[in-house]
Design a protein around this nucleic acid. Structure first.
Length: 207
DNA sequence: CCAGCGATCGCCT
DNA sequence: GGCGATCGCTGGC
């Protein structure tokens, strides 16, 4: 078994944290059992100066957790049906966070599959909302400490370190602003990495 | 107060 | 590769 990361891990520049999180393990324990994924794809969001960040327009009730201490989960609801999970990074009060976009299931694959019955194994946590579905992450986990509580419902654990040469970088997915900032990181050629999609603004249906 | 739209996914062709 | 589902945050009025 691997050790839980400590708070200091997150008290660093967000891009460095993002790269280092690749290969680490996110474990979710619930009444049903445990599901854990090895992280294969992440994105860095750098706080109020980053136009793509939820904290860009300042503190709101939704993003309040981003201004809290590092090493906590920021869970948000989007598109009227999906949850996504971030890990808050330091230094404190910089409101930066890493979005966890994809992983491969390493523990509890049958439980994960029961939560996503139509999903192929490689797709169980392939995408930020699928990852939350496979791990049963929802609003109830917003703000939980992932590195300071060994008995917590959501923990981040050390994994095999990923060599720098095995990491790719590119623009963040589905983000309309700052598309020249290569702050999406993934393990090169890993099948659980989500397909890249450029942001396409939606047109309203003509009446 | 409320219209617009998003760090998406799954089903359809 | 296109499109509909579905809801709460945000900012403009």
């Amino acid at each position: 078994m691997s050790d839980q990361l400590d708070r200091d891990f997150f008290d660093r520049p967000v891009v460095e944290v993002a790269r280092t999180l690749l290969g680490c393990v996110l474990s979710r324990r619930s009444a049903d059992g445990e599901v854990a994924v090895r992280l294969t794809e992440v994105e860095a969001y750098a706080g109020p100066l980053d136009p793509a960040s939820h904290s860009y327009r300042g503190r709101t009730p939704r993003n309040a957790v981003m201004w809290g201490p590092p090493g906590h989960a920021y869970v948000y609801f989007t598109y009227g049906m999906h949850f996504c999970v971030n890990l808050v990074c330091g230094p404190p009060n910089t409101a930066s966070a890493v979005l966890l976009r994809a992983g491969s299931v390493v523990t509890g694959s049958s439980l994960a599959a029961s939560r996503r019955p139509r999903s192929a194994v490689r797709d169980l946590a392939r995408g930020p909302a699928r990852l939350c579905q496979a791990l049963a992450i929802d609003r109830a986990l917003n703000g939980v400490d992932v590195c300071g509580d060994p008995d917590g419902p959501l923990r981040i654990l050390a994994g095999d370190s990923v060599p720098a040469g095995a990491i790719s970088a590119g623009p963040r997915t589905g983000v309309s602003s700052a598309k020249d900032t290569p702050w999406r990181f993934w393990i090169t050629d890993d099948p659980s990495v989500s397909p890249y999609r450029v942001h396409v603004p939606k047109r309203r249906r003509p009446s």
